[in-house]
Design a protein around this nucleic acid. Sequence first.
DNA 1: GGATCGCAAACTGTTGACAACAGACATTTG
DNA 2: CAAATGTCTGTTGTCAACAGTTTGCGATCC
Lengths: 228, 228
Amino acid sequence: MNASAAVAPVENVTLWERVYAHLREQILSNALSPGTVLSEVPLAVSLGVSRGPVREAIGRLAAEGLVTVRPRRSAIVSTLSQEEFLQAYQVREALETLAIRLAVPNLSDEDLDRIDDIVTRQAEAVERDDIARFFALNSEFHQLFVDQSHNAPLQDMYRQLIGHMGRYLMRSLALRGTVRRSIAEHRAIARACRTRDPERAERLLRNHIRVPQRRLEAANNEEVLLKR
Amino acid sequence: MNASAAVAPVENVTLWERVYAHLREQILSNALSPGTVLSEVPLAVSLGVSRGPVREAIGRLAAEGLVTVRPRRSAIVSTLSQEEFLQAYQVREALETLAIRLAVPNLSDEDLDRIDDIVTRQAEAVERDDIARFFALNSEFHQLFVDQSHNAPLQDMYRQLIGHMGRYLMRSLALRGTVRRSIAEHRAIARACRTRDPERAERLLRNHIRVPQRRLEAANNEEVLLKR
DNA sequence: GGATCGCAAACTGTTGACAACAGACATTTG
DNA sequence: CAAATGTCTGTTGTCAACAGTTTGCGATCC
């Protein structure tokens, strides 16, 4: 018997874990838009389980900040105000710059190739006007550095933060203006990684993240922001 | 009729919230040391409640990372390895430097006085060899900037991170060597705040946080670390 | 004597039920 | 007609019970 012990966790996930994953997916993909009420009973019957697992799942989502529960009242999918979103961007900048600083020394040649590959595919996606694809690759690009930072607490925090921001990132990307500039910045960051220059990479990434941040601030000040 | 409506919301906490607060308190104060098993039934009977609230509370703690649950098996209080603790320190540096940069422009005169007061009381605590008090004031000092950053996502993340690190901070403080130096650094940071110099404050704080971090690394390399 | 198999106990995951509470609607009263 | 009050429904908070699984111990076999 070969020693392929726990390669696939055997689908041994408990019920509430599946409910949690399902709801998280729905929320992050905006299938459940902010403000949606999550009543336990309807959810339970629609998912074919009891209230217990649903309750547990909602509890986890609440701990993560994705839903807010008012005692004795239904939970609702959290809303992030314009201001909070901007604040989250500041935290993201801090976390990602730390991540890339830690990651650059750890990057293997395969990682470097993968980074280039992602950017190349991003350019292709833009050519095809495939915004969703571009968006996914963008997340992948940023996630790579967090993964390669080999810093578990950082990874946890980043996951949580992206959970908060993810639903609104599409908008900020629209605000970003030229995606071409974004790709150029990605290329510059990739070059800095190849030359093993953490400080340059960090500086480039910081400016890169600040672009939509500044646009958000400007929109905020002009009060012509996308209300809602 | 004056509008003194809801000054005190009548202590409307649910049961599981109290259990959660209790367990969190116990864990952070090290009354429940890492590795302790948290079985639902004994906890429930000892607290005089049913398994439901206990389960919910443990779930929240698990989402926060303070306990780890293995499916079908009891939850145990999380352990932070030396390496993870060091990594958490890196994240803390990133978050706190962001916090102080944001906070300095927001600091009122009262805040500045309060900072000085904290440092003064720290010096007094050291005179009296009251380490616990010094430690509490130290947390207060750092927390103040996070609070005054007026950045809700940052506050959430910091709270969570401190929850992880808090139990081990006493040790790192011991590692820190001279607490006198720590107080001097606090004083320097306070001065930078008074002169409204965010960059200087940030630089000072970064170096301040890196002191125990470097000592940890050194101890780690020498392998003479305080094992467990 | 040591290892393996089997059984029993304890614990968790899940379910269903009961009671308390918040909000809405209808009713009554000034 | 408006404001306050009472009822009523829907939902959550909590509890007790059931089923499945893991663990530890003991008996048995080699």
